[in-house]
Computed example of a mutant assay.
Amino acid sequence: MPPPAAYPGAMTTVLLTGFEPFAGDSANPSGDAVRAVAARWDRAETLIVEVLPVTFADAAARLRVLIERHSPDVVIATGLAGGRSAVTPERVALNLADARIPDNAGVQPTDAVVVGGTPDARFATLPVKRIAAAVAAASVPSSVSLTAGTFVCNAAMYTVLDATADRAGVRAGFVHVPWSTETAPAGAPALALADIVRALEIAIDVSLTSDDGRPLVGGEIA
């Protein structure tokens, strides 16, 4: 896997992750979209982008390394929700790994915890309602979701929230995206990859501002 893309800028750092293909798919629009965001990035903030393995253990471990190494102010992990037709910021992560199918390492946990000795659930610290509203206002379908499932996406979200729980001012969470029209299986709900990319850029924009529009700089509202 290539190293994360880094863009030097101001003291504010954004970590954006997607996932590799899984379950025999040839593409994953979350990975495609975060790479596209990186290719277009021209802001002052530092952007760290990485495409993660779809494995419970390795995705969690890599997220913790990235957070420890880069101390991001905003963390947005993304993944594919194949049956959805909208971009859906997630509000809640469960401390539960209960896989319907094996991950890409062949691991299929049942009724397991994501992180032992921690709460049963954690809430996103991203402004999920503002993100969904802003994305929808840009004519990209979007709504807040109350379930990230119990597969690797949920485990990644829970890990991100656990890893940032003691980091004051950090905004963190997860955004599910639908299939892109360019790679969707026949009959699957989908959005153009350009719309997914735009939605993630909007999610970053919103996460970098307070409710009244003031910028987030180095973990603090200016």
Rank of each mutant, 00 (worst) to 15 (best):
216 L>P: 14
67 I>M: 06
151 F>G: 09
222 A>R: 14
1 M>N: 01
125 T>W: 05
36 A>Y: 00
58 D>Q: 14
213 G>V: 02
52 L>V: 02
65 V>A: 14
182 E>A: 05
18 G>F: 02
41 W>T: 15
174 F>V: 03
12 T>A: 02
133 A>L: 11
89 P>Y: 10
181 T>P: 08
22 F>T: 00
22 F>A: 01
128 V>Q: 03
194 A>C: 13
115 V>G: 02
84 R>V: 15
54 V>P: 02
66 L>I: 06
142 S>I: 00
15 L>P: 11
85 S>G: 15
30 S>C: 04
103 D>H: 13
71 S>M: 08
222 A>F: 10
154 N>Q: 10
109 P>D: 01
103 D>E: 10
206 V>Q: 00
86 A>C: 01
118 T>H: 04
128 V>A: 06
77 A>S: 09
65 V>S: 10
205 D>L: 10
113 V>W: 03
150 T>L: 11
134 A>R: 11
117 G>A: 02
113 V>E: 13
59 A>W: 11
195 D>N: 12
147 T>I: 03
42 D>V: 04
12 T>N: 03
153 C>E: 10
143 S>H: 04
94 L>I: 11
44 A>W: 00
54 V>C: 09
145 S>C: 02
143 S>F: 01
75 V>M: 02
54 V>M: 06
21 P>Q: 01
214 R>L: 13
145 S>G: 00
73 D>A: 07
15 L>Y: 05
92 V>C: 03
162 D>K: 09
25 D>I: 00
222 A>S: 14
26 S>E: 12
189 P>W: 04
180 S>L: 08
61 A>D: 10
28 N>S: 02
52 L>S: 13
101 I>W: 09
20 E>W: 01
132 A>Y: 01
152 V>N: 12
140 V>W: 06
11 M>I: 02
140 V>C: 12
177 V>E: 05
48 I>R: 10
133 A>P: 12
103 D>N: 03
67 I>N: 05
104 N>Q: 03
62 R>P: 07
50 E>V: 08
191 L>E: 05
221 I>R: 05
195 D>I: 04
156 A>D: 13
193 L>W: 01
99 A>D: 03
170 V>W: 15
157 M>W: 08
20 E>A: 11
219 G>P: 15
99 A>C: 06
11 M>F: 00
6 A>M: 14
85 S>L: 00
105 A>M: 04
192 A>D: 11
145 S>F: 00
134 A>D: 03
161 L>E: 12
127 P>I: 02
